[in-house]
Amino acid sequence: MIQFKNVGKTYPNGVEALKNVSLEIKQGEFVAVIGLSGAGKSTLVKLVNKMHEVTLGDLVVNGITVDSTLKGKELRKFRRKIGMVFQSFNLIGRTSVIKNVLAARVADMSLMQSLLGLYTKEDRLLALEALDKVGILEKAYSRADQLSGGQQQRVALARTLAQNPDIILADEPVASLDPITANQVMKDFERINKELNITVIANMHHVDMALKYANRVIGIRGGEVIFDGPSKEVNEALLKDIYGREITDEDIMFKPEDNEGL
């Protein structure tokens, strides 16, 4: 369970990214955070594994208080149970897919083992299982830079699965993919969320994608949560409120003529 209690975040340069956020996310939920760019979506997601640090209020993740005292070894241990997926995939292109996935196991290995790159057979099997779960097992020994964008994002997803996480954070996971591929990747997220009961928190610019796959939507505007509820309850008036303007073509991935829109 993730609890935000009156959380605020002000960056060192004085920008107030989040104001007075209070939320409770239960294990196994699929949450989409939507809003304009710069509204604070990314900050909200990155607070959870302390990629950014809370400046006001309390954040408790699975019983652990995420504040300035969580650091060093404790922080690394905490992060092992939280996977993260990025917009730009962040894979090492020149190495094989399986090695990219195995990199997630490194944090659990002893220093010598990890420096020499001696993965156990269990680790390798776990990595292969993770690749199988996202449907690209046959690419395990290809070089990552030879894969398409969608396949690369799946590798990144497999990498987080190899961590055996309780929570997966996703920072604009499909924003740099084409609509069809984006749908496939989101389906993987959906399946993993359901089958493995892993909490997924994704910040997404594209409203249609968010509404289609998430059970719960959090709308942010100017650093404040202005909507928090089931995706079914989201309507056009609400979206207009969150975005502060009409929804344009840029905010949805499938254009109306694609027959797949809202």
Binding site: N49, R76, F86, A103
Partner: peptide, 17 residues
């Protein structure tokens, strides 16, 4: 590509790793 380092950071890797 600093993103790779960010990703490793998120898995809980040490500086050496």
């Amino acid at each position: 590509d600093k993103g790779v380092l960010e990703a490793l950071d998120a898995t809980g890797a040490t500086t050496l790793q």
